[in-house]
Design a binder for these strands. Structure first.
Lengths: 238, 238
DNA sequence: CTCGGTTGCTTGTCCGGACGAGCGGCGAGG
DNA sequence: CCTCGCCGCTCGTCCGGACAAGCAACCGAG
């Protein structure tokens, strides 16, 4: 009788209590059975029950009051984090027709500023597009410092099958730590307008990707046409 | 000898270890002393040391690997949450000259949809502007269902000194629970363009404010000119 | 040299017991 | 009637011990 991979007992107790809250057996606002009662019911030690209750409290299922009891708060809502256009772009694979151009160019001022280099320092500009059906739905430009692109395929016009993030991780063991995004409405540049086939306003996203030390690995700039992109964000204000 | 309010021992152990990480005594990547060693050093039981280590791991200070040891990750960074234009607008106070108009109007389609009512249902439209110096920097329109505005000053053109959120909380005991924001680039409407004195692209924010039951309390629509507003967001991708 | 078992260190989980402290009801005394 | 102290219930914290399991290094057999 080998129950392979039986979850730890405190997790079993947690799951049981969560189920009862979902089922309405333990209604919000009501008091849970006392620790002693739960010990008897589940046939485990109090340490185990307490661990389960503490974890449930930390996850927002219940509230514990010293000397009174544990009280049901309800199903905790996941903080439904928002869309991260900057990160998403680094994870998308490429196809032959999605590549617009891959060039070595002098860094424009705003990009040089983001990368922390002098204006007109040579950098690799890798421009791609994404499609929804036949329509071009976004223009993405990556800006890599030469020392980052060195030894990678980022400066070659061949499509990266698994995206920029995987490529940098696999080839140069670079790990992303955090991303800074700056978001504003603007008119598309002439070049973007040509590719998009429209001059209507775009959501401009300027992102920098950093390593654990906080250094900028590279920058990217997205043009998301307003008619096609809506970023949704739900947040708690309790 | 009364040590008033001595913190629990596991918290003392946590604080000591945090201090050593901050001081560099325990450098990132290195292994912490084993639980047994910490038990000896601090003169507490292993349960206490384990509680301290588990809590530190949950807060992101260390990582624990079964059978290997506990390893320092570093000072955990607060997840620097992003700007919430929708919420901010509900918290700003008003002045006499910031009010553009307060009218009872039939709900336009997209607003009716957000509020969950039929098109052209009468609602209160409260339009305001914000300034940076002399320049109008944003146009904010609140859309209140009549039953929400009932008994409040929201349908009166007098400035709300402490903002919409405080007013609804104080007068009708309505508590905000969460906000849903939809964000896109668009052209300003004719009306917004007149007020802003510009037709350049704006960041359009459509937000709904919900109570704990998930019902929509009201909606608001912001027009933030792209040249003046940049939303910044930093997030971890580890 | 290579392979596989043994051994020792580490964390993961669990138990049963212990004492303290917050809270609320109840009854005795004012 | 009100007040105050006692008591029982609850959670908060802590201990020492126990066994399982992951991992790495060592060592002998082949």
């Amino acid at each position: 009788m080998s129950m392979d991979f039986a979850p730890p007992k405190y997790a079993q107790v947690m799951t049981a209590i969560q189920q009862r809250i979902r089922d309405g057996e333990y209604a919000p606002g009501t008091m849970l059975p006392s620790e002693t009662q739960l010990v008897r019911e589940f046939g485990v030690g109090r340490t185990t029950v307490v661990r389960a209750l503490q974890t449930l409290a930390m996850q927002g299922w219940i509230e514990r009051e010293h000397g009174r009891g544990s009280f049901v708060k309800g199903r905790p809502e996941a903080p439904a984090d928002r869309v991260r256009p900057g990160l998403t772009a680094t994870e998308h694979g490429e196809t032959a027709e999605s590549i617009v151009s891959v060039e070595r160019v002098p860094a424009p001022r705003h990009i040089a500023h983001l990368l922390g280099v002098d204006e007109r320092t040579p950098v690799i500009a890798r421009q791609r597009l994404t499609k929804q059906g036949e329509r071009v739905s976004a223009v993405e430009t990556f800006w890599f410092p030469l020392e980052v692109a060195l030894g990678t395929d980022l400066d070659k016009p061949d499509p990266l099958r698994h995206g920029v993030r995987q490529h940098l991780q696999a080839v140069k063991h670079l790990r992303f730590d955090h991303v800074t995004e700056r978001l504003a409405a603007r008119k598309p540049t002439k070049e973007e307008a040509d590719i998009l086939g429209s001059t209507s306003p775009v959501l401009g996203v300027l992102a920098t990707v950093h390593d654990a030390a906080g250094s900028v690995l590279f920058a990217l700039s997205l043009a998301l046409p307003g008619e096609l992109h809506e970023l949704e964000d739900v947040y708690s204000v309790r």
